[in-house]
Design a protein around this nucleic acid. Structure first.
Lengths: 325, 325
DNA sequence: ATGAAAGCGCTAACAA
DNA sequence: TTGTTAGCGCTTTCAT
């Protein structure tokens, strides 16, 4: 180690580099000077090997979700993770999990190649990596679909609260025949958003039977809306579990000659580009995607470093008022 | 190395693991069996340290572009990179370059922590990392803004060809007063798309002066279209350098009471969600974002491994016909 | 508070 | 074809 030319031993240089408190200030300074002069950069591999710490965090994307890169929510989440990690000494390692390499990924994770893992299971609620828990710290994005014995760490957005806020807003503006286009019930966001709507409807003594289910696509939203209108022509508002389905509802509403928000108020969820470009601009529930990524990364680092931390976080959502409700 | 309990030396195990051809088949088999039984996973750090190869590829995102995660093009590009790398032994390392860590990133790259780097400079054409070339293999996404001495490796999409195809389509459908809403001319895509339009206009003896410039936002597209209409009310078609600006043009056209595509045909570029959800659905030029990511990753790996390769690739774009032209 | 010395787990000459 | 022998560059007891 050339930096030892600062007149001290390699061990001392190592101490300085790692911020050991047991080094004389003067020595610290001269070592730092030598480091600067020699433009020294510690070798990561050697450090890992000797310390048995990798300073690497894995971001696991289930293959089925590889396409969700196209999902702005996911993209922002990754951005949040990267942003938080940029301030730390950790590196991000993206693993796309595919059938071909499922065992490979698991072995990689358990092979001591990373200090912890982040799993994005937003859509499926699949926490199959839970088995890693106990062996390797893992933080999930999105709550597990079903509560598990070994409560995994996770960060989620307040889907229920967001849906409730949207529904309350609708009621607050005088709507009474409020329908909802729900998402798949085997996905936590789909389930929670329906649950939030239902809770508020009941609390206000309103009919909570106007439920149609879609699969988060525009087409399914249109389809669901048509069915809803057929069942109850008097609908004066609809809460869709995501923006795409809300846009689909727009289409069905237009077909039936109804105006938004004049005849029917519409609120979506996600606040993605569909909401902004829809006409009229869609009132929707915004979720802190970047913040979720940051929170996940932060939580994982806290766990890895044995610092105090929550076991899970639920981030607040906000209603974004535009023209549709 | 426990696997040596297969009755051979550590060196032989290493050879088997690394697929050396100089090992007796029988031994290979027994070693593999031992590996399986002992559930052995080679330690990455040790391997890196000894071989001086990291099997890690950095993906550098200039901070100013961190937000471009929201850009579907970028998201798909990352997906492509990850998909290609999933089939190799390389890991992906995302580095978000910020002012705070600019030197840090550079040192990290030069500190032997990665085998190569991918730089996404799509929007700016900034190839400031070119200096890394020669030290570390670097492949850029998007051509450099100005040709450089040490021609860097890059993968680009055929912006000029896409623009030309769009313009030809317009001419082919009988349009003659064709305007264009160009992007910033200090960004390669902005420049090349204008250039493609101009080339075809001239080749067909048409007026190539109907140019207005925007900054790739919806608002700038509307603004540009208004100006164009003022200069030449007889415009019967417009090619916008991206979909957002095309949507902006829709707005200006609607304000002036013109129909799309009846009075004015419109073609965009990118084929993102704006194109699909616009009404009427926007005819646009689609670029292979995922393919670009894959190509970048493939090229970099070829360079790293000293295999034969191109110095740069330009991927074809395709015209996606929808309702606006 | 600092140095000496022993590895971390693997690869890569060099021998055999 | 296989084994031997050195390290790769750093951290970390253990002395001092």
């Amino acid at each position: 180690m050339v930096a030892a030319q600062a007149g001290v031993s390699r061990a001392t240089v190592s101490r300085v580099v790692n911020g050991s408190p047991t080094v004389t200030p003067e020595i610290v300074e001269s070592v730092n000077r030598a480091i600067a002069e020699l433009n020294y950069v510690p070798n990561r591999a050697a450090r890992m090997l000797a310390s048995r710490r990798t300073q690497v965090i894995a971001l696991i994307v289930p293959e089925s979700s590889a396409k969700i890169f196209a999902d702005p929510f996911f993209a922002q989440l990754v951005q949040g993770v990267a942003l938080h990690l940029a301030d730390t000494e950790y590196m991000l390692n993206m693993l796309i999990e595919s059938e071909a390499n499922s065992g490979k990924t698991r072995r990689y994770l358990l092979g001591g190649n990373v200090d912890g893992a982040l799993v994005v299971s937003h859509h499926t609620g699949d926490h199959s990596y839970a088995q890693l828990n106990g062996t390797l710290p893992v933080v999930y994005g999105g709550r597990p679909l079903v509560p598990e014995d070994n409560e995994p760490y996770f960060v989620d957005v307040d889907n229920r609260g967001g849906a409730a806020a949207a529904t309350e807003h609708l009621i607050g503006t005088g709507r009474r025949r409020i329908a909802t286009i729900a998402g798949p019930q085997d996905m936590p966001p789909g389930f929670d958003r329906l649950d939030g709507w239902r809770g508020v409807m009941r609390a206000n003594g309103l009919d909570d039977s106007l439920v149609a289910q879609g699969d988060f696509t525009v087409a399914s939203g249109a389809e669901a809306m048509r069915g809803l209108l057929e069942r109850e022509p008097g609908i004066d508002a609809v809460f869709a579990a995501n923006d795409q389905m809300a846009v689909g509802a727009y289409q069905a509403l237009a077909e039936s000659g109804r105006q938004v928000p004049g005849d029917v108020a519409v609120i979506g969820f996600d606040d993605n580009s569909f909401a902004e470009t829809a006409s009229p601009a869609l009132t929707t529930v915004s979720q802190p995607a970047v913040g979720m990524g940051q929170a996940m990364a932060e939580l994982l680092v806290q766990i890895i470093e044995g610092r105090p931390h929550q076991d899970h976080l639920v981030l607040p959502t906000t209603l974004v008022r535009r023209a549709s409700a």
